[in-house]
Design a protein around this nucleic acid. Structure first.
Length: 101
DNA sequence: GGTCTGACAGCGT
DNA sequence: CACGCTGCCAGAC
């Protein structure tokens, strides 16, 4: 796999249970916040090869975004960690946001 | 909330 | 090497 993808996974694995982060924040940590689309792209390609909590990554707008195994699954996993969601959107993103300080 | 545009890594041609 | 797409996006309308 590429270096870019490896860096993405390394960060995602740091997100604690019950917390979420955004594609944009990850992109920012990798040097360019405009590469958020590429971050999501990297996650979709390797979900089947590596075990990482990619369901903890959401859009900066608060919406769940997309997920290789389906939105229903992603929504269930997040709710299972205590995150409130209504209609594929995080109730209060700032309450769960993990910014890697 | 739907739609359009901009940006970017990866992959195929 | 250079385009041209595509995709778990973001921001502006």
């Amino acid at each position: 796999m590429t270096l870019f993808e490896q860096k993405v996974f390394k960060l995602v694995k740091k997100i604690p249970k019950g917390k979420v982060s955004t594609y944009q924040i990850l992109a920012q940590k990798l040097g360019n916040k405009k590469s958020s689309q590429a971050v999501g792209n990297a996650l979709s390609k390797n979900l089947l090869l590596i075990k990482i909590p990619c369901h903890r990554i959401v859009k900066s707008t608060g919406y769940i975004g997309n997920y290789a195994l389906g939105l229903a699954k992603k929504r269930r996993l997040l709710q299972n960690e205590g995150i409130l969601i209504n209609k594929d959107k995080i109730a209060s993103l700032t309450d769960y946001l993990y910014t890697f300080n």
